Simulated assay, not measured.
Amino acid sequence: MKLDKATIEKKLLHFPDWDYFDNAIHAEFEFENFKDCFSAMSRIAFECEGLNHHPDWSNVYNVLRISLSTHDAGGVTQKDFDLAEAIEAIVEVED
């Protein structure tokens, strides 16, 4: 079920790296180098498969940009926050 803007903004209080715009939540993470970035992306990919929920993402050298929304719901859902939480746990390990 698609979440309303107020609910999304309240949930984002627990996700300081994430912003809400263009009907999705977005984050950008910077790593030491390409290898560390790609390693995190690989671990995130396994989480995505496990949750059956996949990001729109791009990578340039050591920067990973991620956008999450639930396409079949037409916006942000709890699935997106579940995946964001998993991504945060993976990225924290990299730090």
Rank of each mutant, 00 (worst) to 15 (best):
K2A: 14
K2Q: 15
L3M: 13
D4W: 14
K5C: 11
K5T: 15
A6N: 13
A6W: 05
T7G: 01
E9W: 04
K10A: 15
K10F: 10
L12K: 13
L12C: 13
L13I: 13
L13W: 07
L13T: 14
H14S: 15
F15M: 13
P16V: 08
D17H: 10
W18C: 09
Y20G: 09
N23A: 12
I25M: 12
H26K: 12
A27K: 07
E28I: 03
E28T: 11
E30Q: 15
E32L: 13
E32H: 14
K35G: 02
C37M: 08
C37W: 00
C37N: 07
F38L: 12
F38D: 03
S39G: 05
A40Q: 03
R43G: 00
R43L: 07
A45M: 09
F46I: 11
C48D: 07
C48Y: 02
C48I: 03
L51G: 08
H53G: 04
H54G: 04
P55M: 12
P55R: 07
P55Q: 10
D56Q: 12
S58F: 08
N59I: 02
N59P: 06
N59Q: 05
V60L: 07
V60D: 05
V60K: 02
V60A: 06
Y61L: 09
Y61E: 11
N62W: 03
N62F: 04
V63M: 01
L64P: 01
R65G: 01
R65P: 01
R65C: 06
I66F: 03
I66C: 04
S67L: 07
S67K: 14
L68S: 12
S69K: 15
S69G: 09
T70P: 12
H71W: 10
H71S: 11
A73S: 14
A73G: 06
G74S: 04
T77V: 10
Q78F: 05
D82K: 06
L83V: 14
L83I: 14
A84R: 08
A84S: 09
A86T: 02
A86D: 06
A86I: 03
A86P: 02
A86S: 10
I87Y: 02
I87D: 02
I87R: 01
I87L: 03
E88D: 11
E88K: 05
E88Y: 00
I90Q: 07
I90W: 07
I90G: 08
V91C: 00
V91M: 00
E92I: 08
E92P: 00
V93H: 04
E94L: 00
D95R: 01
